[in-house]
Design a protein around this nucleic acid. Structure first.
Lengths: 142, 142
DNA sequence: TTAGGTGCAAATGATTTGCAATAAT
DNA sequence: ATTATTGCAAATCATTTGCACCTAA
């Protein structure tokens, strides 16, 4: 018996979402896969530039928009007045140091339990959520 | 025995934070006290205008900034690319309908429990948090 | 070929800033 | 009187849009 192991690929993900495969799109997907912290548009663009891909900022925004529309990435806000993006599989919560700006991760799935309660109490169907903590990281408490 | 009941007053709150009492500041405090949903700068300004107070937008932003700096109000983001503000005592979480934009409240204090755990596990001192749910409200599920 | 993707330049929207005039204590 | 606060106008920053050109399928 032969088992086909689904080899993960940015290109395949794009195709699976009926999106044309372009260098800029591959670059964005790759980058978001490689980083542990959610990244903003500017950071993403600069990384692509390093790899010799030079899309217009408008293109980056359009790509981020379509990818989050397809659910491949998540658009989040961390109280900075701009958006950050993360690969959907990387979803987790953050600890944002209000002093130095450091962003740490917290893995916690307690929120999932709440969604059922909300459905019952409020009749609201939760599709996604954000949970962020602001405060002082270890280094900034002195 | 005479009991002094602390009569809540916007002016007193301002004074207690060493802020000068001005019409615009009173107006902002009053408005945020009167509404159940977090409001954006534009909405706040329009309300003040109705009451005959006509500050410049820049003044509104400066007031919102100083009030949140003093902890009298909270600055939050609901995925709209702008900030909203709420009276600190009104802190709660929101259900944001991604279809019609309706904002509902959820009262829940389960998050408080987490802050202790985060302190232990991550050494991170939580000062505030945000928890928002995105999905479809009752009306928009059909 | 052709629908979808991109570059460029200009527009938008929220928020911020410098500075001089003004009002709260 | 003194210092904080405000108004005004201009600047900034992130993001969006119109349109002509280009490219992946």
């Amino acid at each position: 018996m032969i088992t086909f192991i689904k080899q993960h690929s940015c290109k395949d993900e794009l195709k699976a979402s009926n999106l044309k495969v372009t260098p800029a799109r591959i670059g964005v997907m790759r980058f978001l896969e490689s980083v542990s912290k959610p990244a903003d548009a500017e950071t993403i663009l600069k990384d692509l530039n390093k790899e010799g891909i030079n899309p217009d900022p408008a293109t980056i925004y359009r790509i981020l928009d379509i990818l989050s529309g397809k659910g491949l990435i998540q658009k989040i806000e961390l109280g900075e007045g701009k958006y950050r993006y993360e690969k959907s599989e990387n979803h987790h919560h953050h600890l944002i140091c209000t002093n130095c700006g450091k962003i740490e991760d917290v893995k916690a799935d307690f929120v999932s339990n709440l969604e059922g309660q909300i459905r019952e109490k409020n009749g609201f169907l939760v599709k996604s959520h954000s949970l962020e903590f602001f405060g002082l990281c270890k280094n900034c408490q002195n």
